[in-house]
Structures are given as C-alpha cells and as structure tokens.
C-alpha cells in the first residue's frame, strides 16, 4: 500500500496561473445527478458491504429505486426551470433497465459520464484485464445508447484501484471526479496520455449532507450551497473556480427537499459571471487554454 497516492503534485492555492472561463465568468458551475441502479441481490464483494441488512435489504433498495421512478423527474423539472444541464454520473446498466431515463437526459442535451455499471459493483480488487473489460463495457454502452464519448469518470460507489487513473487516460477519458483535493481542475499524473481531476465537492454531495456525515435538514443544505457559492464567486474574481453540486435523485428529489434546492439553484443562476455548464465543457476548455500552463508551472515549482 502507498502512503501518498502520488497522483498529483502539491500545488498551493496561492500564486497559481490564472484560470479564466468563457465570457469572463468567475465560476464554472456544474450539477451532477448520480443516476444509479442498485441490485436487490448484489454479488458479495470480498472487501466492502454497503447494505446493513442481509439481502434483500428492501429499505436500502426501495429508497434508491425512488430516485428513478419519482425523484429524478422532479429534479429534471427544477433544472429545466433554471437552465441547468446535468452532467450525469451514470451507472450504465440504467441504459438497459430504464432507457426512458436516457431518452429524457438526451432530450435535455445532458452529458452522460461513467459511474460504472451498477452501484453495487465495486472496482476494488479488479485485475488489469477485468478493469479493462469493465471500462470498455462502460464506454461501449454509453456510446451505443447516446452516441456520446465518455469524458468523465466517477468510480462506482467511489471504489478505486491503483490502476484506475492510468487506464482512464489510456482510454481517453478527460476527467476524473474521484479526487477531492481542489476547487480548480488539476492535472493528474498518469503513465500515458493526459487526465485532469474535476472538482466534485464531496461536502456539497447530498448523500454526505443528508445521510453519511451531517444529517442536515433540506433548508440547511440550501444554506450551505449558497455559502459555498458566495465564497467561490468571490475568489473567482481573481482566479476562476469550479462549483459542483453532486446529487442523488433518490434524496434531493424527495418532495421535502426539492423546494429548498430549487431556491439554491435560483440563487446561483441569478448571478452574472456564472458559467452554467457541464463537466465535459469545463474539461475541454481547461485542456485548450490552461492545461499546459498549469503543468509547466507545477513542474517549475517542483524543481525549485
């Protein structure tokens, strides 16, 4: 095991090359609905178990199924209202189980990126051959059902291997969401090709806020979103920032949560200088205008 993942260089937040966004925007804002499928009887994994009760854990299963049947459609309505396209972190088995969802995403011109196959299948322990098969399955499935290439990758249930990032670069994935070390995109060290990390704000994630860490109320969540935005907007005047809201329709799409969330979205989108965009578009802009400068600056600072 490694004590330092050694996938990025240390780069302090001050004295960085200035990041600019289109039309002089201060903040690149992207919203990530995690559209997931959890199996009722997942195969056991040797190192991780998510369900508290022996399968079938119908409370775990049915509460998540709520997202696909009801919550997502409520979320789509709110995002449409404020002109926010989703960047979907997709369990690609949803393409097979629920093609109506994919159709609704494509109709809205949303981006589909990878969140593995099922949220009940983890990457831990995969051999290289298995990992390649897994990545190829995801890329082919998204291509087949949407025509899109896979630009982003959030490992299913945040399960990683030490190979994952190198393999993603090899398969020409543009960005990973698995690193939470920064509020700007950052180059990732890979063996071949290029990869960047995209800020995916673990503390803005509704599942962390409501379930895993904080148990906050929906209105408290809306306050934290606004405060996060205010700070990133202020800092973005000097050097462009990225604001991300990672969401789970089974949580945010509940009737008692969607109202306060809509207010937060209205607050953000009512500001000038906010680039309301997708992960792919942020990554493409960053590679085009900033990647080489940032890599050069980081190389120079590590040589000092």
């Amino acid at each position: 095991m490694l004590s330092d993942p050694n996938v990025y260089v240390y780069s302090p937040y001050n004295n960085r090359p200035k990041i600019t966004w289109p039309n002089g925007a201060r903040v690149a804002f992207w919203v990530v609905p995690n559209i997931e499928f959890y199996e009722l009887y997942p195969p056991p994994h040797p190192t991780r178990k998510d369900m508290a009760r022996p399968a079938p854990d119908i409370q775990f299963y049915s509460s998540r199924d709520y997202g696909n049947r009801a919550g997502l459609w409520r979320l789509m309505e709110v995002m449409d209202r404020y002109g926010v396209r989703g960047s979907v972190s997709l369990n690609v088995a949803v393409c097979d189980h629920h093609p109506e969802i994919i159709e609704a995403c494509l109709k809205r011109n949303w981006e589909l990126f990878s969140h593995g196959v099922y949220n009940t299948r983890f990457q831990y322990g995969m051999s290289e051959a298995q990992h390649r098969e897994f990545i190829e399955d995801v890329i082919a499935t998204i291509k087949k059902h949407s025509g899109q290439s896979v630009a982003g990758w959030l490992s299913p249930a945040l399960s990683n291997t030490e190979m994952t990032l190198d393999l993603l670069a090899e398969y020409e994935v543009l960005y990973t969401c698995d690193l939470f070390h920064d509020d700007q995109p950052q180059p990732v060290k890979v063996k071949k090709g290029k990869l960047i990390s995209m800020p995916y704000a673990v503390e803005m994630n509704d599942i962390m806020v409501f379930h895993q860490v904080a148990a906050r109320s929906p209105r408290h969540y809306a306050e934290t979103i606004k405060a996060q935005f205010d700070q990133l907007y202020e800092e973005g005047a000097e050097n462009g920032t990225v604001m991300c809201i990672p969401l789970h329709p089974f949580l945010i799409g509940q009737p008692h949560r969607i109202g306060p969330f809509a207010e937060a979205l209205e607050y953000i989108t009512s500001h000038d200088g906010v680039w309301v965009t997708t992960g792919r578009e942020i990554a493409q802009h960053y590679y085009k205008y900033h990647y080489d400068d940032v890599v050069a600056a980081q190389l120079q600072s590590t040589r000092k």
């Binding site: 199996e39 009722l40 088995a93 189980h97 322990g125 051999s127 897994f134």
Partner: peptide
C-alpha cells in the same frame, strides 16, 4: 475478484426482480 463479478445476468429492460 472472481470473473462472475463482472457478469450481469439480469441487465435487461425493467427491474432486476
């Protein structure tokens, strides 16, 4: 991981039950 871990026998339209 056993190779079966990457097999998905009920990956089809509708629910998995």
């Amino acid at each position: 991981l056993p190779n079966e871990y990457l097999k998905y026998p009920i990956r089809k339209y509708g629910m998995d039950q």
